[in-house]
Design a binder for these strands. Structure first.
Length: 257
DNA sequence: ATGGCAATGTTTCATTGA
């Protein structure tokens, strides 16, 4: 079983690339972030033609998350947002597929350390940590995946000195990420040997991608039973190439049955 | 073999992203 996550930076713009990528990779579940589409504009028909059912929670211009499920698999108990914590910003959606609870996250960017958005980010992450603990108590098979907007360690940063203390790399953000792990989850990427300087996001500016000036901020976290089934975890940096790419690459894990 | 910001909204620039 293949689970994937991809911040597409506008599903409207990225739809052709997404459809092509689905055909090439045949994932079973795909968590999308930054769809930037209101629900009535979601391309349900095109996604169905590609062989996937879609569950989504979106808004105009910003944010928006979706879970795509390959036909033949059923998604149950779809929940948008965090129960008991209303939020205008559409950043969370969850569903159960093949006995796995999947939570799709689009963590706030935070803009700049000590900004209002940064405080919102840390507060939001604290609430999510509680949500994950709660879900994990009921779902031993849990995958939490998406755009976390945190580079957990210096090895996830192309130039740690340049980024030291900056948003995406600051210690409070890293502590928030560790709180997700402390809830009982593993960073699937680090279950395996990986090439050095592996990143999932590259700025559109200043030749960042060809120079591999990136950050690893997209993650798939697995509960212990799923981590035990995990055969691989990788970043598809090929999908960052070519015309009109997202600034994020898709990430994938493969689980044995 | 990659490519020098991109997407959105209402525009001819502002805002946001990370």
């Amino acid at each position: 079983m293949i689970l994937a996550a991809w911040n597409v930076n506008s599903l409207n713009i990225r739809l052709p690339r997404l459809v092509e990528w689905l055909a090439a990779n045949k994932p079973d579940v795909v968590c999308l972030q930054e769809t930037k589409l209101e629900d009535h504009k979601f391309p349900v028909v095109d996604i169905a033609a590609a062989g996937y059912a879609a569950h989504f929670a979106g808004q105009k211009t910003y944010n928006g998350v979706a879970i795509l499920v390959r036909e033949g698999l059923a998604a149950t108990d779809v929940v948008a947002g965090v129960p008991g914590r209303p939020d205008e910003q559409k950043r969370v959606i969850a569903a159960t597929i093949a006995g796995i609870r999947v939570i799709n996250l689009y963590v706030p960017n935070g803009q700049a350390v000590d900004s209002d958005k940064y405080r919102y980010k840390l507060d939001w992450c604290g609430a999510i940590a509680g949500y994950l603990r709660d879900v994990l108590s009921r779902h031993p098979n849990l995958a939490v995946m998406g755009d976390f907007n945190v580079a957990p360690e210096d090895r996830d940063v192309h130039d740690p000195a340049l980024w030291a203390g900056q948003v995406l790399c600051s210690e409070p953000e890293r502590a928030a990420f560790r709180l997700f792990l402390a809830a009982g989850l593993k960073d699937s990427f680090r279950l395996f040997e990986q090439p050095p300087k592996s990143f999932s996001w590259w700025d559109y500016r200043q030749l960042a991608f060809p120079k591999n000036h990136g950050l690893r901020i997209d993650h798939i976290l697995l509960s212990p039973p799923l981590a035990a089934r995990c055969m691989s975890s990788r970043i598809d940096r090929n999908a960052r190439k070519g015309l009109k790419p997202s600034d994020h690459a898709p990430i994938l894990v493969e689980l044995r049955d």
